Computed example of a mutant assay.
Amino acid sequence: MASTRRNAAWEYFGEELKRRREDAGLTQAELGHRVFVSGGYIGQFEQAFRKPQLDVAQRIDDVLQTGGFFERTWRKLIREQGFASYFEHVADLERLATKICDFEPAIVPGLLQTTAYARALMRTGNPLATDEFLEEKVRFRSDRGLILKDATRPLYWTVMHESVLRVVVGNPAVMADQLDHITRMVREHKILVQVVPFSAGSYPFMGKMVKLLEFEDAPPTVYTEGVRSGTLLDDPAVVKHVREDYDLLRAVGLPPEASLALIESAAEDYRRCASTT
C-alpha cells in the first residue's frame, strides 16, 4: 500500500511537470536542453518511469519559475522512499534495468543479501538504532532483491572478491545461509556469479564498489559508492571506460563453476563452525 501511494505521488510530480512545461510553452526537448538532460528523460519524468535527481528538480524550478515547487516535492517524496537520499534514484533504476553488473570488494551485493545478513550488517553500522528502525531498513533492502525473482528480471552478473566469502557478518550460521542463498540463485539460473580469488592479486576497481546498469530505451549508467555518499555517472566516455574495466575484472575472476565451488566450500566451512558452537 505504501509503495502504491509513493508511485501515485510521483505520477502527480510528473503530471505537474507536464502541465507547467506546457504552460511555459516548452517542448520536452526544449526543457531538457535547459536543464541539461535529454527530452526523452523529461518524458520519462512526466510518465513517472524515472525520477529526477535533486539538482535536476532544482533546475526545473529555475527554468519554469515554480518557486521551488519541484524541489520541495522531491524532498518530501524522497523522505518517504526508505532509502538513503544518494541511493534512492539507483533503487528506481534497478527496477528499470534490463542488465545489472555488480562488483563488491567486501560485502554481499544488496540485491543478494538475505534478511539475516542485511540485519547483521545494518546493526554493525547502526549500533544504537531501534529495532523498528533497522527492521524497516532491512525490509526495503529485501524488497529490492525481489526484482531477481520476477519473470521479467534483469540479466544479473555479479563479481565479488573472495574477502566477501571470508569476512564473517553476523555469525557462521548467518554466513552459511547467505552463501547457500547465492548458490540457489545460481543453480536456478537467476544470476551469474564470479569470485576474484586472493591469488589474483591486484585487480580493476580494487577496493571500490561499482554497479553498471543498462536499459532498453535509455543510455547505460554507472553507480559507485563512498562513505554515506554515492555517485551516478552517465557520461558515455566514462561509462565505456568502466565497462571495459569490468571486462578486465571478469578476466581475473574464477570461471562461474569454479566460483560456485568456492562459495559452496565456504558455506560448508561455516556450517561446520556453526554446528560446533
Rank of each mutant, 00 (worst) to 15 (best):
A24T: 04
D131L: 03
E264Y: 10
F69D: 07
F83Y: 11
V167T: 15
R144Y: 00
L54K: 12
A97E: 08
T115I: 08
A173N: 09
G145M: 00
S265F: 10
D247L: 13
L254R: 12
R184D: 12
P220W: 05
R75W: 03
V186S: 08
V159N: 09
Q53H: 12
A274E: 02
Q113D: 02
G201S: 00
L165M: 06
F49N: 15
D177M: 05
R144I: 03
R139T: 10
V164L: 01
P219I: 02
G43V: 05
V239W: 10
A129K: 02
D245M: 13
S3Q: 14
V108S: 06
E11A: 15
R59E: 15
S229I: 00
W157K: 04
L112R: 04
E216C: 10
L26N: 05
E136P: 00
Y270I: 07
V90H: 04
G201Q: 00
E257L: 13
R243S: 13
R243Q: 13
T276K: 14
H161F: 09
N7W: 12
E244N: 14
R6C: 01
D177Y: 00
T73Y: 06
Y12P: 00
G230Q: 04
H241A: 15
Q53M: 12
P105G: 09
L212R: 05
C273W: 14
G145N: 03
